[in-house]
Nucleic acid binder design. Structure first.
Length: 869
RNA sequence: GGGCGGUUAGCUCAGUUGGUAGAGCACCGGCUUUACACGCCGGCUGUCACAGGUUCGAGUCCUGUACCGCCCACCA
């Protein structure tokens, strides 16, 4: 029984309505475990989804509703195709956004040096002065707040009708995610694919943490070129070098000047030394091909570190480090004259520097410029410019580059292998693969995965502390995998006692947490319960699809491919379904402020979940889509129409019998073709076409077919032909509802329940053979033509009535159908239906080259109007 | 500077191997038609961005240009 269990009798409400369907059916689906994953099925019969875990510290906006609907449509289709759908839901509650939200919400700040206070209770209202709490206390607050957020999210997802298995949830800060993150990391470490190194690192001075290349963004900022003179070291006054810089405050960090090897202006100076203004520090003039003769004066100041190019020069020219920026962004104290800070006039240098030490970069810049002006080393006035500056995407101040000890995961060596993985993956739409290749080809360094933050997955290891109390980072103490997850700030390495923490001869925990992407990149492993539930893992991994938006191809998609490549030497999924964004009507990305005005729940309540899903499903893979409440209204109308048309079809379903009438066969044959195309399209993630075609078919079903068979189904042409109509109606309705079910889960379930015991979402996806029934295909081409012919004649009659502004129930005195002989030959098949539907009293035919219908209406009754006063 | 998409009706968009330009919305007109007034019927609307080329024939294929959007790189 493809349709599921039939009820013993059909019950149709008098006035079917959409109101309340969301509550009614979400409760039923939950009670019936309609979307529960059947884990008895082998991998070949499973369709598994690597659902994107939304960031719970943010709020859900229209874009989420949009893209999650796409995934749900495909998941529902696969379920109806007979697959056991593994459709988990994760919550991304790990990382900086949560930290910030918790700080503001509770009025606390994390101080990792404090001990855990089990009796700590957060105040009702956040105090003005933030309360310092320990890392475990802080994490408890994070967990508490995210748990509340997750409830709100889950409610919205259920209301939207996502067919998620709510037994299968995870959180990126949860125990499982921590264990898997740590496990994968330890294995990478053992294989030499993760390593720790002290090196220049991108650094956010507000969050005081390292960040990764993938988390950068450019912002246009005002700045200025300052031309500064460096005197020659040997005192030859005529010789000096002028440079342009936008960061004069880094002058004390200058370690060399650089120009292009072929630049004739500077060739004589290569190998000589110059003296920094203000500080009198001797720095060499060097040659490097990355220096651009066209920029500024052609010579540049190399500082440790002003930008990424400085790092390259520093490394390739073997220059020393002379760092001045501290982790908090302020200039650190420096003693001129000491090693590394030798000066030709240490007292003068110190006097200048003391005025900027402790200042932020921006304030120091102002002061340094004043000093340069006073000393006469600033040539001309600063020339204002606007230039792009690198920011951490969540940060407020430009990134600095600091030398620090960080963990990295090897990526640069894997480029070729990753490009091959990208080609192996099936992208929807295919052109999104180019984004991936672009990113891989543009990688500038290995992935920095350590963050100097608190609410994240800790690195699961310790270091030995030497007899002198210093940490020996080479002497790592690694736990056994069985101990994971663990927190080295509270857990103790094997063979040590808690009192030995941070003591000479004892141990110290790694202080950092992992980049949130280092955990998110393991979502397939987390959802599939890697190394915990081997049976489940084998049934769902590698997964079938990763749905996600295009802006995080460089992060989430790339990182996940990388981790799976390392952990399994395989792709984590076969398909990547890339969704677009929701745009404001003015074509800008839907802004957060606007997203908050138009809340998803408000939209769902106003237009109905089916109406909103209808709009969402009109957005093709990869294509940005305009926010359009008009389409939601259209979707809602479609849902209402489904209720009413279904009511009509089911109102009179007896007798049933063989489908023999031409238009009936034509209807089912057309529908069979749609079923075939829809199945193919959905297999290829082309869901928009399926909705369009099905909708278009459904409207012509209502407008033409229903009108044509209205009389016959009640027995006007005898029981056999009534049976033909009723069977065709019921067959078509059943198939259409199932075609609509992935898109409009609520209204289709409601209608289905009028005559079925079980859920439409567990029903079998329709097939062409089922729709055509026994003997299908015999006369179907003729049937399709007959139906189209009849609809065309009916349309001509309506047009005439409309033109003459007469009611549609006006009888037709004479209808002359002129058409080619082949068409006219179909007339006997449809004549009775046509006469009834068009109220045609006399039907004549004549041969003609093209179809043309001449309609003469019966004379109108004289209209008697009351005389106007 | 490199890459990727886009440009079709007032708006949002389809257009699948090249064969007379489509849908919905909006707009206009009409209709109480026992499934639906949360409805029904009908109508109006186009130099398919521009310029070349291939072809009997181009929205569709090729070349170039312009504009819009996104990604990346450079940013002394």
């Amino acid at each position: 029984m493809p349709d599921g269990l039939l009820k013993s009798s059909i019950t149709v409400p008098d006035k079917p309505a959409l109101e309340g369907l969301e509550q009614k059916w979400t409760a039923r689906w939950d009670a019936d475990a309609t979307y529960q994953f059947d884990r008895s099925r082998p991998r070949a019969e499973v369709y598994s989804v690597d659902t994107p875990p939304p960031t719970v510290s943010g709020s859900l906006h229209v874009g989420h509703v949009f893209s999650y609907t796409h995934t749900d449509v495909v998941a529902r289709f696969q379920r109806m195709r007979g697959k056991a759908v593994f459709y988990p839901m994760g919550w991304d509650d790990n990382g900086l956004p949560t930290e910030r939200r918790v700080q503001n919400y509770f009025g606390v700040r994390c101080d990792p040096s404090l001990p855990y206070d089990p009796s700590f209770v957060a105040p009702d209202k956040p105090p003005k002065q933030a309360i310092a709490v320990s890392r475990p206390n802080f994490i408890e607050l994070c967990a508490r707040l995210t748990a509340e957020d997750e409830k709100v999210f889950e409610h919205l997802w259920r209301y939207l009708g996502l067919s998620v298995d709510w037994q299968m949830t995870y959180a990126t800060i949860g125990r499982r995610a921590q264990r898997i993150s740590q496990l994968s990391f330890l294995r990478l470490l053992t294989r030499g694919l993760a390593y720790q190194v002290e090196a220049p690192t991108l650094w956010d001075v507000d969050f005081r943490t390292a960040v990764a290349q993938a988390e950068l963004e450019d912002r246009e900022q005002p700045g200025a070129y300052h031309r500064i003179r460096f005197a020659a070291a040997d005192g030859a006054a005529a010789v000096g070098v002028e440079i342009d810089t936008t960061r004069p405050e880094l002058l004390p960090a200058c370690v060399a000047l650089v120009a292009h090897p072929d630049d004739e202006r500077y060739r004589p100076l290569f190998g000589t030394d110059v003296i920094t203004p203000l500080y009198g520090v001797k720095v060499p003039v060097r040659a490097h091909p990355l220096a651009d003769p066209e920029k500024g004066t052609g010579a540049a100041m190399i500082c440790t570190f002003g930008d990424v190019t400085d790092v390259i020069w520093w490394r390739e020219l073997g220059l020393p480090v002379r760092a001045v920026i501290q982790p908090n962004g302020a200039l650190k104290p420096v003693r001129f004259g000491e090693a590394g800070w030798e000066s030709s006039d240490a007292a003068r240098a110190q006097q200048h520097y003391d005025q900027v030490a402790g200042l932020s970069a921006v304030k120091a810049r102002v002061r340094v410029v004043e000093q340069l002006r006073e000393s006469g080393d600033l040539l001309g006035e600063p020339r204002p410019i606007t230039h792009a500056v690198k920011f951490y995407e969540k940060g407020d101040r430009p990134l600095e580059i600091l030398t620090s000890r960080q963990w990295f995961i090897n990526t640069m060596d894997q480029r070729e292998a990753l490009l091959a993985r990208g080609r192996e993956l099936q992208w929807h739409p295919p052109y999104m693969q180019a984004r991936f290749e672009n990113w891989v080809n543009g990688l500038a360094g290995d992935w920095c995965v350590s963050r100097q933050r608190f609410f994240g997955v800790p690195f699961p290891l310790w270091y030995k502390v030497g007899a002198d109390g210093s940490i020996d980072y080479e002497a790592r103490l690694l736990p056994s995998e069985a101990r994971l997850p663990l927190d080295p700030s509270t857990d103790v390495p094997d063979g040590y006692r808690p009192e030995q923490r941070n003591q000479p001869g004892g141990f110290a925990g790694d202080p950092d947490v992992m980049d949130t992407w280092a955990t998110s990149s393991l979502t397939p492993q987390i959802a599939a319960r890697w190394e915990e539930d081997a049976d489940l893992f084998a049934r769902v991994f590698p997964m079938d699809v990763r749905p996600q938006a295009h802006d995080i191809i460089r992060t989430w998609l790339f990182d996940t491919v990388l981790r799976s490549h390392f952990d399994f030497d395989a792709l984590p999924w076969r398909h990547a379904a890339i969704s677009g964004w929701v745009l404001d009507p003015d074509r800008k990305k839907m802004s957060k402020s606007k997203g908050n005005v138009v809340t998803p729940m408000g939209l769902l309540e106003e237009h109905g979940s089916d109406g909103v899903r209808y709009w969402a499903a009109s957005g093709r893979s990869g294509t940005d889509t305009a926010f359009d409440p008009g389409q939601m209204k259209v979707g809602r109308r479609l849902a209402i129409k489904l209720l009413n048309a279904s009511k009509f079809v089911l109102a009179n379903h007896e007798p049933q019998g063989a489908v023999t009438a031409a238009v009936d066969r034509g209807l089912l044959a057309s529908l069979a073709a749609i079923v075939r195309q829809s199945t193919d399209d959905l297999e290829q993630y082309h869901y928009t076409r399926v909705l369009e075609r099905t909708e278009s078919f459904f409207w012509s079903f209502c407008d033409d077919y229903l009108e044509l068979v209205k009389g016959r189904r009640y027995g006007d042409q005898g029981a056999a032909l009534a049976a033909s109509a009723n069977t065709a109606l019921l067959t078509a309705l059943s198939a259409m509802l199932r075609l609509f079910a992935p898109f409009l889960p609520f209204v289709t379930e409601e209608v289905w329940s009028w005559w079925h015991e079980s859920s439409i979402h567990r029903a079998t996806w329709p097939t062409a053979a089922e729709v055509l029934g026994p003997g299908g295909g015999a006369d179907d081409a003729r049937g399709i033509e007959a139906l189209q012919f009849a609809a065309a004649v009916l349309g001509a009659i309506r047009k005439k009535k409309s033109e003459e502004q007469r009611p549609l129930k006006t009888p037709v005195a004479v209808a002359v159908v002129r058409a080619p002989a082949a068409l006219l030959a179909l007339l006997p098949d449809v004549e009775a239906d046509l006469r009834a539907a068009g109220l045609i009293q006399r039907l004549e035919t004549a041969p003609a080259a093209a179809l043309e219908v001449e309609v003469t209406l019966v004379a109108a009754e004289p209209v008697i109007r009351d005389p106007q006063p």
